[in-house]
């Protein structure tokens, strides 16, 4: 096996471990069937496999907008984590989603999010959702996330 193969195998193993943790840690992501596809600096790609229980319009079989917004929210959050020097709890401040065209029935939805700016308190993210190509998007989103100033900030109820 070449060094390139080793690196690739290590990345895949890391992704598998992250996926397990991600699903175990976030019940709603697990219930939706979301999975991480890839992670990079300030960047995340996630997949929402098509599933009958996520359908919003039973006549057409098109996914509910809420399932797409959950995917984009989760993917944006993952991109924020990938932009932080050290992990701190984050909370969505706001998220705007534009629905550009209906998702096609039976097809998985992919979301790609990029955290393009991190300040002391707030991280800024944009994301696009698509089936096959980012050039043919289903939805686009832009959002801001609050960063905890120290570990445990929200655990003590300060954010509520």
């Amino acid at each position: 096996m070449s060094a390139g193969d080793d690196a690739r195998a290590a990345r895949l193993e890391l992704l598998r471990r992250l996926n397990r943790g991600f699903a175990e840690m976030v019940p709603h992501n697990r219930a939706l069937g979301m999975e991480l596809v890839s992670l990079d600096d300030a960047d995340a790609v996630m997949r929402l496999p098509y599933a009958p229980h996520l359908v919003g319009n039973p006549d057409t079989g098109v996914l509910h907008g809420g399932a797409v917004s959950s995917l984009m929210d989760a993917c944006c959050g993952a991109a924020v984590f990938m932009a932080l020097a050290e992990p701190v709890p984050i909370a969505t401040l706001d998220l705007r989603i534009d629905y550009l065209k209906p998702a096609a029935p039976g097809q998985d939805v992919i979301a790609h999010a990029c955290c393009y700016k991190v300040t002391r308190n707030v991280a800024f993210v944009r994301s696009v959702a698509f089936h096959d190509s980012e050039a043919d998007p289903i939805a686009s989103a832009v959002g801001a996330f609050m960063l905890a100033t120290r570990l445990g900030h929200w655990q003590r109820g300060a954010g509520t």
Binding site: H28, L32, H64, G65, G66, A67, S70, A74, T92, L95
Partner: peptide
């Protein structure tokens, strides 16, 4: 709660 679930409630 997941932000996406709250978003889905609001949109619905």
């Amino acid at each position: 709660l997941h932000g996406g679930a709250i978003g889905a409630l609001l949109e619905s």
